Amino acid sequence: MSEPARDPIQPPPVAERVFGLRLPLAVRYARLLAEHGVVRGLIGPREVERIWDRHVLNSAVVSELLPEGWRVVDVGSGAGLPGIPLAIARPDLEVVLLEPMARRVAWLEDVAWELGLAMSIVRGRAEEGVVRERLAGSDAATARAVAPLARLAQWSLPLVRPGGRLLALKGASAAEELTRDAAAVSAAGGVRSEIVSCGGGVLDAPTTVVVIERGAGTSDRDGGRRRRKDR
C-alpha cells in the first residue's frame, strides 16, 4: 500500500526555529499562498511544492540583517515576499508593503487582515515622487525578484535614510551583478556593498542577499518624518 502524498503546506522542522510561537501564522500564510497564489498569478504551479524552502523560509531568514524596531519597506512586494514572512517572524519590525498592481494590493490586504498583521500596504512604485515623500527615511528596503541591481538601487535607496540599507535578495549571480552595476549603485548613493548569506544552519540553500548601505552624504527628503537613530 502506497504512502499518502505529503502535504506541501506541512512546515519542515526548521520552521519552528525561524518563527517560534508564530509558526501557526506562517502556516496559514503558506496555505493562502498555495490555495490562491497560482490562480492570482503570484507564484507558478510548480512553486506550491517549494513554498517553504523557496519562498517563506527563504524570505524570513533575512530578518538576521534587521535590528530591532526598524521600519522596512518591501519594494515590489507581489505575493508579500519577503515582507510578510519578515512581519510574521519579527513583530517588532514596522513593515510596509509597496506594490503597484491593484490586484496584488488587494491580495496583500486580504492576507494582512486574515493573519491579523499590523503592517501598512501602499499602492505605488518606489520611483514615484509621492511614494518617496511618504516612505523616505525608512531604515531598510527589501526587494526580491524585482529588477537588476542598478535599477533597484536607483529606485529603492531614496526611500532609505543615510546609514540605512537596501537588502536585495539575489541568486547565484549576485557577485557578477554587483560588479557589473557597481558604478550605478554608487551613483544612486550606495556605499559599502557586500554579499551576505542568511539562514546558514537552517536552510539547505541559504538566502543570498546583496546589502547596500546608503551614504551619509546623500540628500534626504524625509517628508517631515522623524529621523531615526541607528540601532
Rank of each mutant, 00 (worst) to 15 (best):
E109D: 09
D230A: 13
Y29A: 02
V48N: 03
V211E: 08
A188D: 10
S2T: 09
G80I: 08
A174E: 01
V210I: 05
I43Q: 02
L166C: 13
L25W: 01
V131Q: 09
L98Y: 09
E213I: 11
E109W: 02
L21K: 12
A126I: 14
T142R: 06
S193E: 15
I51G: 00
L178T: 07
C198V: 03
R28D: 00
E16N: 04
F19S: 09
G223T: 13
E49S: 02
D7L: 08
R71K: 15
H55L: 01
G223F: 13
V196P: 05
V61R: 12
D92T: 05
R228V: 04
V160F: 09
M1L: 14
L25I: 01
V130Q: 13
L108P: 06
L157T: 04
V48Y: 12
T208F: 07
W107I: 03
A205V: 15
A184K: 04
G171R: 02
V73I: 11
G190C: 13
P11T: 04
T179F: 11
G224C: 11
A168I: 06
L203S: 02
E64M: 04
V14E: 15
D204L: 05
A184W: 03
R71F: 00
I121P: 10
P206W: 11
R161E: 06
I212T: 15
M101L: 13
V146M: 11
R28L: 11
V18N: 02
L167R: 13
V18Y: 00
E109L: 10
A89M: 12
R231F: 09
L25E: 06
E176V: 12
V191F: 12
L97S: 06
A188S: 15
A153Q: 04
V73E: 01
L203T: 01
P4D: 09
Q154V: 09
L42T: 02
D74G: 10
I121N: 03
A30R: 05
E133G: 14
S77A: 10
A153I: 06
V56S: 00
W70F: 07
A34V: 06
A118M: 07
R227T: 06
D220N: 13
L32R: 14
